[in-house]
Design a protein around this nucleic acid. Structure first.
Lengths: 327, 327
DNA sequence: CTGAAAGCGCTAACAC
DNA sequence: GTGTTAGCGCTTTCAG
C-alpha cells in the first residue's frame, strides 16, 4: 500500500481511506489512487487489515453436520451467498452431529477472531455455550429453533412438523402407524420430529405400533432397507412416517418392489420437500421447508447483529404440510 | 499471550514457542506455560500469528460450482476433513460455473494470503490464470484432470469416461443413440463426457441420433423432463447416455411412467455412482467415481506442495465403468 | 480533505 | 534453553 500511496503522491493513510471507501478524500485523489492500484496490481492484505483494526475480521464461521448433504448444502449456499454479498468470508466446519467435534472447531475458529458464527443443530457442549457466551460473539443457531439460544436462533419447528403430520395421519383414519429413521447414535432433528409425531398420536390415545431407527446415515437405501425390516417385524401397517423424504422414497421403492400399494396398503409421508420426490409417480405427502429462506434469514440476522442493528433473537422459518397422494 | 508469559514467569517468546510446539524449551517450562494457558483461558490470535510470520496464513481457499450438490459436497467434506487434520482452515466459494464469479472470489481470497487454493472445474479466465501464476501460490485444480494446470491438477478423465461409455453402448449393439444433459448455458464437465461419448460413436461411424441439453441445473426432474422431450422429438432410440445418474434416474422414471421398458425398449446409462441409484429395481449402468478419494488426494497434494515436499503435478483419480442392467 | 505517529499480537533473527 | 529487539501492513487517533 505504501508503494501505491507513493506512486499516487499521497500518504498511506489517504490511500487506505480511498481503498476502504470511507469519507475523507476528494474525487481527484480517489482517481489518482485507484489508477495506481490498477497499474501496480495491488492486492490488499486483509490479514493485516484485520490485525490493525483490532476489532474482528470479516470471517464468519459456519458449522454444519455434514457438507455432503444436499439439504445442508443448500443452506450453506444461501448463507454463503448472503454473506459474500456483504463482504464476509465463510469458514466452514463439519461437526458430524458431535458436540465434541463442534467444540474443537469452535475453539479453533475463535482464534481467527471471526465477526460471528452460524451453528447448526442444537447439541452444544456446556463448554461451548460458556465459551461463546463469555466471548460475546454474535452467534446464530440454525436448523432447529432453539428457544434458549446462546445468542440468536433461526429455524424450523421440528416438533411441530412431526406433530402436524401425526394429526394428519390420524385424520386420514390411520391407526397402526410406524416410524422410520436413521442416525440412531447421533440423533439430529429428525428425533425431535419423531417426538412431535408420537406426541400427536398419544393425544389421540394411539401408540406408535412399531419403529425402525437405523444407525446408518439417512438416505434412499437406508429408507428401503429400514422399511423392509419394519414391515417384516410388525406386519401390516396403515402408514409410516419417515425421518425425511429420501428415506420415504426408499420406502416407496421397497413397497413397489414387493407389490405393496401406496397408499392403499400402506401410507407413506416424509419431511423436507427434497428434490428426488419430484420424479415419483405420486406426489409424496411431506412437509415443505425452504432451506434457502433459512440460510438467508440466518445470514441477515447475523449481519444485523454484527453491525449492531436491531434484530430479533428468535425467528421461525415457516414450514407447511403439503398433502400428496401417498398417505 | 503477554499475560500468560508473565504469569508463567517466562518471556513472550518462550510462551510462543511452547504454544507452537517448536523446539527450544524444557518440559518444566511447557508445564508452567500450559497451566497458565488453561487457567487464563487464553485464546491465541491466528490473525496476528499469520500477520507476524509474514509468510502466509493457514487458510486454504476452496471453490466449487455449487455447495448445494451432494456430489461436490462430498468432495468438500473430504477436502475439509483432510485439511483440518493438518491444521488448515477452509474458506469456501461457489462460482456457479462462471469464470467471472470465480475471478472475483479469487481476488478476494488472495487478500487473505491463503497457503493454497483448490479450484474445481476448468474454466478460468485469462486474468485468473495470470494472477495465480504470478502469485506463485500452490493451486490444485480438481474434478477434471487439467493437463496444463496452473500448478497441479487432480481429477477424473471425463472425456475417457464418455468415450468408454460410448464404446460400451456400441458393444451392446446400439445404433440409435441419444444424449441428455443440463447446464447448457454454463457447461461443466458433463460437456466433456459428452464429447468423449460422441467421439467413440464417431470412431464407429455412428452419429448421435438426437440430444436434449436443458438450460436447467441437473437433477431428477430435469432428467425426467428432458427424456420426455428427447423421445417425443426423435422417436425410438436404442439407448440414451445421461449427464449423470440423477438425470438417468429421472429418465428411468419417465420411461416407467409411459410403459417404456428399460433396457428392452431403451437403454439408459449415467455417470457418477450417485446414491439415489441404489433404490432402482435394476442396477444402473454408470461410471463409478470416488469423490472421497478425489478430495483427499487433492488436499494431500496441496499440503505437500505447501510444505515443499515432492508432489506430482498431475494425478488421475481412477473411474470405472460399472455395467448394470439398464443398457 | 490530508498526514504523522503509534500500535495491534505475534514471530524471525539473533544474542546470551 | 531462554530472552531481546525489531517489524510485519494496516488502521486508529489526533493534529493540521
Amino acid at each position: 500500500m505504501a508503494e501505491v500511496a507513493k506512486a499516487a503522491g499521497v500518504s498511506k493513510m489517504t490511500a487506505s481511506r480511498v481503498l476502504r471507501d470511507v469519507s475523507g478524500f476528494s474525487e481527484e485523489t480517489r482517481d489518482k489512487v485507484m489508477r495506481e492500484v490498477e497499474r501496480l496490481g495491488y492486492v490488499p492484505n486483509r490479514i493485516a487489515a484485520a490485525f490493525g483494526s483490532e476489532q474482528t475480521s470479516t470471517i464468519i464461521g459456519v458449522s454444519v453436520p455434514f457438507l455432503s448433504s444436499a439439504i445442508f448444502g443448500s443452506v450453506l449456499d444461501s448463507i454463503n451467498g448472503a454473506l459474500a454479498k456483504f463482504g464476509y468470508q465463510t469458514m466452514i466446519g463439519a461437526h458430524e452431529n458431535s458436540a465434541e467435534t463442534e467444540e474443537v472447531w469452535i475453539k479453533n475458529i475463535l482464534s481467527w477472531r471471526p465477526a460471528g458464527l452460524i451453528l447448526s443443530c442444537h447439541s452444544h457442549s456446556a463448554t461451548t455455550r460458556e465459551l461463546l457466551k463469555a466471548h460475546g460473539i454474535p452467534v446464530v443457531e440454525i436448523w432447529n429453533l432453539n428457544t434458549s439460544p446462546i445468542d440468536m436462533s433461526v429455524g424450523f419447528n421440528h416438533f411441530d412438523c412431526g406433530y402436524e403430520m401425526g394429526e394428519y395421519m390420524l385424520g386420514r383414519g390411520h391407526k397402526r402407524i410406524g416410524y422410520v429413521g436413521a442416525d440412531a447414535e447421533t440423533p439430529g432433528l429428525g428425533a425431535l420430529r419423531r417426538k412431535g409425531f408420537v406426541s400427536a398420536l398419544k393425544n389421540a390415545s394411539v401408540e406408535l405400533t412399531s419403529e425402525e431407527i437405523l444407525n446408518d446415515k439417512s438416505g434412499f437405501y437406508a429408507g428401503f432397507y429400514a422399511t423392509e425390516n419394519l414391515l417384516n417385524r410388525s406386519g401390516v401397517l396403515d402408514a409410516i412416517y419417515y425421518q425425511d423424504d429420501n428415506m420415504a422414497i426408499g420406502g416407496i421403492f421397497y413397497c413397489q418392489s414387493r407389490g405393496i400399494s401406496v397408499p392403499e396398503d400402506v401410507g407413506i409421508a416424509g419431511w423436507g420437500s427434497m428434490e428426488a420426490a419430484s420424479i415419483l409417480p405420486k406426489r409424496l405427502t411431506t412437509t415443505v421447508v425452504s432451506t434457502q429462506a433459512l440460510g438467508k434469514t440466518a445470514a441477515d440476522a447475523l449481519i444485523a447483529r454484527v453491525r449492531g442493528e436491531p434484530q430479533e433473537d428468535l425467528v421461525i422459518t415457516p414450514t407447511r404440510l403439503a398433502p400428496g397422494n401417498t398417505v
